[in-house]
Design a protein around this nucleic acid. Structure first.
Lengths: 190, 190
DNA sequence: GCCCACATGTAACCTGTTACATGATTTA
DNA sequence: TAAATCATGTAACAGGTTACATGTGGGC
């Protein structure tokens, strides 16, 4: 039931519509939790039915109406309790690494390309995160308590990302030593 | 369908039974892919039905019979093709970090404990990985091609893990500054 | 006899993805 | 009028978890 809690977490400070949640998830919590809009809408219905969220329709000028959700007292309580529950299963799913177990002369070039692309995507993401840290979280000890938690999430993402970048570099270098045509063809040696 | 390919990857070198796969998954691929025995048995049935795996019953002395699976030619081909498919969705699910967004004086102690426990578990895991690297992968460039891929998977796990350890340290330190009773007592102001 | 490791499975349920569906409003 | 963005939804299916079920053989 962690999606429910990720949504409630996102609603702690601001009331948001399903559309806004789906969009903002990618930008903020997105590093640690991903969800499609379909999933989010359904979860919002469930949470509202359990009275953990309240909803109100908001009329907008020049845009369709939206349904904005907010945490109820019961929702806040449920979220606070959830933090004390023990987290059980670690999600370990990394297709790219499974692919690497199958590294061969045939697929080395493809895997290089895939890693290079992922590296590029991560670079862009890290740029945003790094800016955020520099702008708002430069002095962690002086932050209010909740922001300290957000800061720790932020540097978790940054650290993971940077580690990924340097791994990519090492991977690309080693895979280059495998690629056919690179060492046998010996073109442009000088 | 990535579980299927993770299983086939595990069967590349050795034929294994469902039980052995479930057990070994944790030890080797476990860092990058987790699956329960129920899931594995069902996937094995599917793969055998599609003729990507063959099976044979093995009679054991002092143990129940087991059903050992191996890759067929079609299976090897399917696996080789899969490597060239583009990986789409990144799994980003980390409950612990979502919990951190909800850091408060009330739950600081609990979160510290949870992080400390995870740190401990990771330490043990890394010990195994580090030994593996030192024993078999000390000179990556001289490894055969496929082993280079395994090596890259290994250092991916090691890097991620070490990054996690140092993040834990920083997190524990910062959360300590939050915990009630720690700062109000004003001990060792330094 | 009881517990543990070995060994394989089914069923119900929850979670997550993909495809499909609808409709308003703005900009080109 | 066509495309883009905003906005919300349903349905079918695939993936994954939890609970339940069965049976062998060794050690205490």
């Amino acid at each position: 039931m962690a999606l429910a809690h990720a949504i409630m977490t996102a609603l702690t400070d601001d009331d948001l519509s399903g559309y806004e949640l789906a969009r903002d998830f990618e930008a903020s919590l997105g590093f640690f939790w991903h969800a499609s809009h379909q999933q989010i809408y359904q979860e919002l219905h469930k949470l509202a039915e359990k009275s953990l969220l309240n909803k109100r329709e908001v009329h907008q000028a020049g845009k369709p109406n939206k349904i904005v959700y907010g945490l109820t007292k019961a929702g806040r309580d449920a979220l606070a309790e959830w933090v004390f529950e023990t987290t059980k299963n670690q999600n370990a799913k990394d297709e790219l690494v499974i692919k690497l177990y199958n590294l061969s002369e045939d697929n080395a070039q493809h895997l290089s390309a895939e890693i290079a692309q992922r590296r590029q995507e991560m670079m862009q993401r890290l740029y945003t995160y790094e800016k955020l840290r520099a702008d708002y979280y430069s002095d962690p000890l002086s932050l209010p308590t909740r922001s300290k938690g957000v800061y720790l999430a932020l540097i978790r993402g940054l650290g993971q990302g940077q580690q990924f970048l340097s791994w990519c570099d090492e991977a690309l270098e080693l895979i280059a030593s495998v690629e056919t045509g690179t060492d046998s063809g010996a073109d442009s040696t000088g």
